[in-house]
């Protein structure tokens, strides 16, 4: 109780001093100046030292809050950037799978087209034999014609060999086109590399130049971004070569289809003619 009795007295003494100062200041200010400055001086004078301490305490939390906000913003942007690069990589892998499947499909179609072309050649030769049979069947003198055409057995063989040479030329042209397809990716490869490296170098240049002072802090994030970008670069190169090869393959198949179209038209005409001849014979 004695301590409680003494301490309050001490507090009152301090309070008395402060309030006396306030009263005196207020009294003097009222005398000297008008009412304009009263609120400022009243509010500021009594707790000057405490105000300084309060200001220091207040400023450090605000600085800490700003730094926290900055760190959060930075982390959010980095996270979004990383997610974007990961998504891009996923799309690239998917695109690569689709491209490979397309290439396999094209290869199968090429085999089918070549087989069909070969069958058309066989059909053409078969029709030639059937034509000779029809000639023999037409009349008694057909045999003589066949004998004469028998003398012509060599010319049909000669006509057959040009066909074979044409097919071999076509194969050679396809091989040449394949070679050109192989050469064409190598020729634009250097500009492709330049084109691929240009945005990547830009991406690498900007963050590296900007974050040199803070490389230690951003190192893991920056390293991951760089590795993702390099992986994207290599995948894009693979896709470019794949696209070039697909283009060449499709061009060659287009030519193959055109040739096959001519063969089919020829075979169609022959079949129609022979059908007419057989109809006449049946009427007889």
């Amino acid at each position: 109780m004695a301590h409680n009795y003494l301490q309050p007295v001490h507090d009152h003494f301090d309070d008395v001093d402060r309030f006396e100062d306030v009263d005196d200041d207020l009294f003097l200010q009222n005398k000297r100046t008008g009412a304009a400055k009263l609120p400022q001086q009243r509010s500021t004078n009594p707790f000057e030292m405490d105000d300084d301490d309060e200001e220091e305490i207040t400023s450090s939390p605000s600085v800490a809050a700003q730094r926290l906000a900055y760190a959060e913003k930075r982390r959010a942007i980095e996270q979004r950037t990383l997610d974007s690069t990961n998504k891009s990589l996923g799309l690239l892998y998917e695109t690569q799978e689709v491209g490979k499947a397309t290439a396999v499909e094209l290869a199968k179609q090429r085999e089918q087209l070549e087989k069909t072309s070969h069958q058309l050649d066989e059909i053409s030769s078969t029709l030639r034999f059937s034509q000779r049979h029809l000639t023999g069947l037409k009349s008694v003198f057909g045999g003589l014609k066949n004998y004469l055409s028998g003398n012509r057995d060599q010319p049909p063989t000669a006509t057959g060999s040009p066909t074979g040479s044409q097919s071999s030329q076509e194969a050679n042209s396809n091989i040449n086109q394949g070679a050109c397809g192989g050469a064409s990716p190598s020729a634009p490869l250097s500009p492709a590399e330049r084109y691929d490296n240009h945005p990547v170098s830009q991406l690498r240049g900007d963050p590296s130049s900007t974050y040199q002072p803070q490389r230690q802090a951003a190192n893991p994030f920056q390293a991951q971004i760089d590795s993702n970008l390099e992986e994207m670069c290599s995948n894009l190169s693979v896709l470019k070569m794949l696209a070039t090869d697909l283009g060449g393959e499709i061009e060659s198949q287009n030519e193959l289809l055109d040739n096959m179209n001519y063969k089919i038209e020829d075979v169609d005409l022959k079949i129609h003619k022979q059908n007419k001849d057989m109809s006449k014979l049946l009427k007889k």
């Binding site: 900055y70 930075r74 942007i77 950037t81 690069t85 799309l91 991406l203 963050p207």
Partner: peptide, 15 residues
């Protein structure tokens, strides 16, 4: 922050 945002913008265009 501005540099980070620009980087994100470029990477989004690439995506």
């Amino acid at each position: 922050l501005q540099a980070l945002e620009e980087q994100e913008q470029v990477i989004r265009e690439l995506e």
